[in-house]
Computed example of a mutant assay.
Amino acid sequence: MVRNSTITRKTKETDIQIELNVDGQGKADISTDIPFFDHMLDLLARHGLFDLEIKAKGDLEVDAHHTVEDVGICLGQAFRASLEDKKGIRRFGYSLVPMDEALVMTSVDISGRPHLFFDVDIPAEYIGNFDTSLVIEFLHAFVNHFAITLHVKLLSGKNVHHCIEAVFKGLARAIDMATQIDSRIKGVPSTKGEI
């Protein structure tokens, strides 16, 4: 079974192409023209062992909001399309990821029900020219279009770069766990018979 997808989105604000292989090796080719965001998406691919190619152009002369949000939309759609009927997946995944003094707990349920619980007090408004409030905007878009429940909690941390990096690494590890195929699971892992 090949679990991959290609998503394109073109609006008056953004032009995005994403190629995703869920069962990859962590290869990434990311270009959004937002260097810190590129770095976080590269971490997501590498630590989740997803092969991920993202080419995004947006109205950065306005700000980065539209680009970050629309990449979240497309990446959520890519994961959802790659998993198709979700047969045999573990469904649940979690991680506890340290990044120096920062520690983040992440838990995911590929439930078909979008919900984000985000308890992360990011202690600065910007990293370079990246608006840190866009982290939650990315996650909202990603969760809504992947149709997953995601909990993210910062347990400790003061350095804003470390905190956000731990969020993305934790997300990668939790999604990797949840999307893995378990040969013991027959059909969809739900008493409803579908997710």
Score class of each variant (00 low, 15 high):
89 I>N: 05
159 N>T: 00
122 I>R: 00
132 T>C: 06
142 F>M: 02
135 V>T: 15
94 Y>L: 09
111 S>H: 03
107 S>R: 14
91 R>F: 03
71 V>F: 12
75 L>W: 11
120 V>T: 07
112 G>K: 12
103 L>I: 02
110 I>K: 06
78 A>R: 05
123 P>L: 03
64 A>G: 07
172 A>M: 03
97 V>I: 15
124 A>M: 10
168 F>K: 07
122 I>C: 03
107 S>L: 13
99 M>A: 11
127 I>L: 04
151 H>I: 13
167 V>A: 00
113 R>T: 09
124 A>L: 08
155 L>E: 14
91 R>N: 03
106 T>I: 14
151 H>V: 13
95 S>R: 11
148 I>N: 04
85 D>C: 08
128 G>N: 08
93 G>T: 07
76 G>I: 06
102 A>T: 02
86 K>D: 02
83 L>C: 12
72 G>Q: 09
96 L>G: 05
98 P>M: 13
147 A>Q: 15
109 D>W: 12
135 V>C: 10
111 S>Y: 04
146 F>C: 02
156 S>P: 01
98 P>I: 09
71 V>E: 12
131 D>G: 09
139 L>D: 06
161 H>A: 05
149 T>P: 01
128 G>V: 01
81 A>W: 00
69 E>P: 12
149 T>A: 13
173 R>N: 05
155 L>A: 09
91 R>S: 04
76 G>H: 11
82 S>I: 08
90 R>D: 05
169 K>G: 02
79 F>G: 02
65 H>V: 08
136 I>V: 14
172 A>S: 14
112 G>I: 13
164 I>V: 08
62 V>M: 04
173 R>K: 15
